[in-house]
Design a protein around this nucleic acid. Structure first.
Lengths: 299, 299
DNA sequence: GATTCATTGTCTAGAGCTTGTCAAGCAGGT
DNA sequence: ACCTGCTTGACAAGCTCTAGACAATGAATC
């Protein structure tokens, strides 16, 4: 199937004038012609025009961009193929997600870091987490499940996200009389991204967070909570859903901290554990909004 | 891809006026020109301008900075703004170590982060690692052995140090044609601080580092090395000293990468493994100086 | 302390270059 | 007739170039 210039113009968002001028002045394309000399564009041509428009929108000159091959353009844009559908919307969450995924696929750590930093700066910490980090994580997870991502790639994402979140977290100014929250994961829980996300959200809500990393025994958690003067503890449970040791840890923690101490428990598998522990009065939350509400409810 | 002055200005944060003035007055660059005399900047040029801006932002004069080569600028730049200031007692490595230890004992994460950030800024990345991070780690470890530090405290130190090192690492500008180094720890090795330290040092030596976190199987390492175009792989081995699986991973890695691919192996327990694997030609290093030497010896 | 003096970022003016847009005139399609 | 598309030439904005100038800063000298 070949497109006429009219169609191509509406597909790319360029004017017919511009497309012709680019061809005339920079020999950007040589579309096929009908017997009557009309231009006929193929998919490749449309793709190239989209890439070039992206470059120009990004502030590069058409003169320079026109000298690049499609491959080079694609790399420079560092936007995934999906990105080309919405050429005008360079700073939407989708763009940051797509750019991040593309970086992961290329195993390009620097690019990944870069797109996350820009995303956080542009969207602000809260929306960034909800609209970029969480979707990105679930995307990576689904690819992980279907084995279309390697261990190395998954490690890279984790390392970069961790740094990114920690950086967000440490960028908050904490007022000296802010309430303190201790964040960690119980023994047996190695996944820490959930805990880090929670830390950032709490920071946004003006809590002063002490983050102790994953995999902490209940005795240590309660001891640290006392020592750091925390007025609440938040735990993240992501995987697995049926470890009896974790239940035991939760019970022990409730004993140590006393009946009235606020303990927030969230994460994908939290409900699985809390179902049988309702009498222990944990504050359960399914998503970040519930987490915020839980925080507000504390003192 | 060559950039116009407009693009370069927005990439570096300098004004067009300034860029032209620097060129005119200090012959900082000789960008290519188009046939119509417009400046065209390459990646190298942008890199140099970024370095120079870093110098100027740090309070140095452009006149002096312009006399330095890119390599010299890179080294100086990573030392932080106060590299040339006079040290005094307040800012000796010992002070930073003591402040850090005190923060750990109090379980005061913010204070720990703060003293490490100031230490890194004041001493510069290289000396900071050698004179603060390493002594701090060995101090924590000895208290860990004698049980005078809790798991929570140890976790906090690890989490904060990790962030601190990652931050140092990502603060380097990477030269576009820098050699690439892949850093990780083999499967079974959960301790990642050694790998992070190595990453920072390599960054100081102008390598572009891809850091993949700990605990990566040999197949993944070799695959990632190929994919990221690395010219060397660095592994850190801290504990335990006698895991036969790790030896197996090392052997497999050597097979996958071929006889001549540079594999640097360091860390406390590295000698224990390498003793029986001498024929496989790993580059062993006992300390950071040996690591630097090993890096220099590559290509 | 007041004064030179060099350094440095910014700006202006005039000329030339790039680029998006359009009009005129022609060719073909409906 | 009416529409669309093609080529060529034109034009206004906006960029970039050089050369020169200005004000602020800070070091050196009187």
């Amino acid at each position: 199937m070949k497109y006429t210039i009219r169609t191509v113009a509406s597909m790319t968002g360029l004017s017919q004038y511009t497309i012709r001028a680019w061809e005339r002045r920079h020999h950007i394309l040589s579309p096929d012609r009908t017997e009557t000399n009309r231009r006929l564009y193929g998919e490749e041509d449309v793709f190239r025009l989209k890439l070039l428009k992206q470059m120009v929108d990004a502030g590069h000159s058409i003169g320079q961009s026109s000298k690049l091959t499609n491959d080079e353009l694609f790399r420079l844009g560092s936007l995934g193929p999906d990105a080309l559908a919405f050429p005008n919307d360079r700073n939407s969450p989708e763009q940051f997600i797509n750019a991040s995924i593309a970086s992961v696929v290329r195993l390009d750590e620097e690019a990944l870091r870069d797109s996350l930093v820009r995303g956080a700066a542009f969207l602000g910490a809260g929306p960034f987490i909800e609209n970029v980090i969480l979707p990105l994580l679930s995307h990576v997870e689904s690819r992980w499940v279907e084995k279309s991502i390697s261990i190395a790639q998954e490690h890279m994402v984790t390392a970069v996200l961790r740094t990114n979140l920690e950086q967000l977290r440490s960028s908050f100014l904490t007022s000296p009389n802010a309430r303190r929250l201790l964040v960690t994961t119980p023994k047996g829980q190695m996944h820490e991204l959930g805990a880090l996300i929670v830390s950032v959200i709490a920071g946004l809500e003006s809590w002063q967070v002490t983050y102790l990393g994953p995999n902490l025994p209940a005795d240590e958690i309660s001891h640290a909570a006392t020592k750091s003067g925390a007025s609440a503890v938040a735990l993240s449970l992501v995987y697995p859903a049926d470890d009896p040791d974790i239940s035991a840890e939760l019970i022990l923690l409730r004993q140590n901290l006393g009946e009235d101490f606020p303990i927030i428990v969230g994460g994908r598998v939290a409900p699985a554990y809390l179902a049988s522990l309702q009498h222990l009065d944990f504050l359960a939350c399914q998503d970040l909004n519930e987490f915020r509400t839980a925080l507000e409810g504390i003192k």
